[in-house]
Amino acid sequence: MAVENIIVVVIFLFIQLFADKLISSEKIGRFSWLSFSGGVAVAFIFVYILPYLHDEQSKYGESSFRGLTFESEFYLLSLVGLIIYFVIHNIAVRAYYSTSRGEGQFFWIQIAFFALYNSMVAYTVFGSDVQGLQTVFYGVAIGLHFMAISHDLHREDAGRYKRGRYYLAGGILFGWIFAIVFTLPEIVLAITFAVIAGAMIFNVLKKEMPTEESAHLPTFLWAAFIYTVITEILKLLFNW
């Protein structure tokens, strides 16, 4: 069991359990944190998620079924992930407005989805062949992504979040343990990543991109720029 994996999973769990304490409640501090997280998340999408999808598509794109060659199946799987997230989000919103107990239903639908989402993300992180500095570096981006999600859930319903955060942390533990115990074929990992990528892209663009009212623009721009530059340098140096 790699030491860096243990470090990253501890960071993930700490973020899920204490996201509401990590981000300042003071307005300017909160906007700066969220703008920083959004900048890193957007950069992560374009310098890692999309290139990885391209590599997986190139790797498996020559496969065929009954003489038919599929040239965009991993992109289609990402689209499926995006649509699934969109549908679940809309079901949760409808639950919120449909009944007097809608607020609770809305929140727990989100918690259930993100617990599953966390387990799948953890599985792709710890089940892949990413090691060493690369694990820690990409773990930082995903950790900030988790922080933004948890903070958003906390702001929606602080009372229910106190219990819901344990389900979120449990999702990470499940994905980590599953990756340790089971060694699945690489194609399964690639498919899982493609589906999660779609959900992640939707979530980043819808919820993590700072709005005009809450954006701290210099922080967002610097975060996106610095993370992109560092990632590209590390890719060049270590052939990631």
Rank of each mutant, 00 (worst) to 15 (best):
I15M: 01
I15F: 05
Q16F: 03
L17S: 00
L17A: 02
L17K: 01
L17F: 03
L17C: 01
L17P: 00
L17D: 00
F18K: 00
F18N: 08
F18M: 02
F18C: 04
A19I: 02
A19R: 01
A19S: 13
A19K: 03
D20I: 09
D20P: 10
D20M: 12
D20F: 13
K21T: 11
K21C: 08
L22V: 08
L22I: 04
L22S: 08
S24L: 00
S24Q: 01
S24I: 03
S25H: 06
S25N: 07
E26I: 04
E26C: 04
K27L: 06
K27I: 14
K27H: 05
K27A: 08
I28A: 03
I28E: 08
G29H: 00
G29Q: 02
R30A: 02
R30C: 00
R30S: 01
F31N: 04
F31Y: 01
F31W: 05
F31K: 03
S32P: 01
W33H: 00
W33Y: 02
L34Y: 02
L34I: 05
S35I: 01
F36V: 09
F36A: 05
F36M: 04
S37E: 01
G38W: 06
G38P: 10
G38H: 08
V40F: 09
V40P: 12
A41N: 12
A41V: 01
V42L: 07
V42I: 06
V42W: 05
A43S: 15
A43Y: 02
A43H: 08
A43R: 07
F44N: 10
F44I: 15
F44P: 05
I45N: 09
I45C: 10
I45T: 14
F46D: 05
F46T: 11
F46W: 13
V47D: 05
V47T: 15
V47G: 07
Y48W: 15
Y48D: 06
Y48S: 12
I49Q: 05
I49F: 11
I49G: 07
L50G: 13
L50K: 15
P51S: 11
P51L: 09
Y52S: 10
Y52Q: 02
Y52D: 00
L53D: 03
L53T: 11
H54C: 03
H54M: 09
H54N: 05
D55Y: 11
D55S: 15
D55M: 13
E56F: 13
E56G: 08
E56C: 03
Q57H: 07
Q57W: 03
S58H: 14
S58I: 15
S58M: 15
S58W: 11
K59W: 09
Y60N: 10
Y60T: 11
S63A: 12
S63V: 11
S63Y: 14
S64G: 13
S64H: 11
S64K: 15
S64P: 11
F65H: 06
R66Y: 07
R66L: 10
R66Q: 04
G67P: 14
G67T: 14
L68C: 09
L68Y: 09
L68M: 12
L68S: 10
T69G: 04
T69K: 09
T69R: 09
F70A: 08
F70Y: 09
F70D: 06
F70G: 01
F70H: 02
E71Y: 13
E71R: 15
E71T: 15
E71F: 14
S72A: 12
S72G: 14
S72L: 10
F74C: 06
F74H: 05
F74E: 04
Y75F: 13
Y75G: 10
L76E: 10
L76H: 10
L77P: 09
L77E: 08
